[in-house]
Design a binder for these strands. Structure first.
Length: 222
DNA sequence: CCAGGGATGGACT
DNA sequence: GTCCATCCCTGGT
């Protein structure tokens, strides 16, 4: 199989909507030690749900109107680093910073399909058996992968967090575009179809309410 | 310093 | 399907 780490020029393109679509089917890896002496453990999953955030005009973006604060500064970096922030005081949400320097575009990864290190992801989630909710949301997938706000501004071509192309071919008819979740405050940006979901997976985030015959996928055994 | 918010999750029926 | 606890951190002062 053709597997390769996505290069910086993948992330540094201008079109965050295209990048959001293209991230579907790519494989998000972490190799983190959670502070354990034993060293890092590799965990990974196929990206199956993303959302695009396109500052400066996007009112749903934390960097709306090119608002630069200590928190948002990393979004203005050149693409290929993480933006991890705390939501509801509990959940670490993992974003991929995209675009050239000073363009505050980002992609929120909302769900993955777990494929590598599932046993360890279960431990991090305090679960015993694989269910469809292991990585089915932006907060829980970070938890399963060991990502927290400490990993903000991490180089996505480094050894801790990265994304690989495993050669999965995704056609546009395999992608459902819908409005983004949890951005009711964003006025005229509320209804834009900037959320992208890969069909055939059941473990997308909970707020996804569409049902289709294609939603018959079951996670493979551990 | 501190009021208010928040790209949610999970418990429950 | 519905409901609501969550609590740290941001950002303006």
């Amino acid at each position: 199989m053709n597997k390769k780490k996505l290069p910086l020029d993948f992330y540094r393109r201008e079109d965050v909507l295209a990048i959001s679509r293209e991230l579907l089917g790519k494989v998000l890896f972490t190799n983190l030690d959670d502070g354990r002496k034993e060293g890092p453990i590799t965990t990974a999953g196929v990206i199956i749900e993303t959302e695009a955030y396109r500052a400066p005009e996007d009112k749903a973006s934390h960097a709306y109107n090119d608002r630069r604060t200590k928190r948002t500064e990393v979004m203005f970096a050149a693409g290929g680093v993480s933006y991890v922030y705390l939501c509801y005081g509990i959940h670490s949400l993992f974003n991929v910073v995209t675009g050239p320097k000073d363009t505050a575009h980002a992609v929120l990864v909302r769900a993955i399909h777990p494929i590598i290190g599932i046993e360890h992801m279960l431990k991090r989630r305090n679960q015993n058996t694989l269910k469809s909710n292991l990585t089915s949301g932006p907060g829980v997938l970070s938890n399963a992968l060991g990502i927290n706000t400490f990993h903000n501004s991490t180089d996505l071509t480094g050894a801790d967090i990265w994304i690989e192309d495993h050669g999965y071919v995704i056609s546009s008819k395999d992608i459902i575009a819908t409005p983004r979740i949890g951005i009711a405050y964003a006025k005229e940006y509320v209804d834009l179809p900037w959320r992208f979901v890969l069909k055939n997976y059941e473990n997308i985030s909970k707020s996804a309410t569409y049902t289709e015959d294609s939603m018959s996928y079951k996670p493979s055994k551990v």
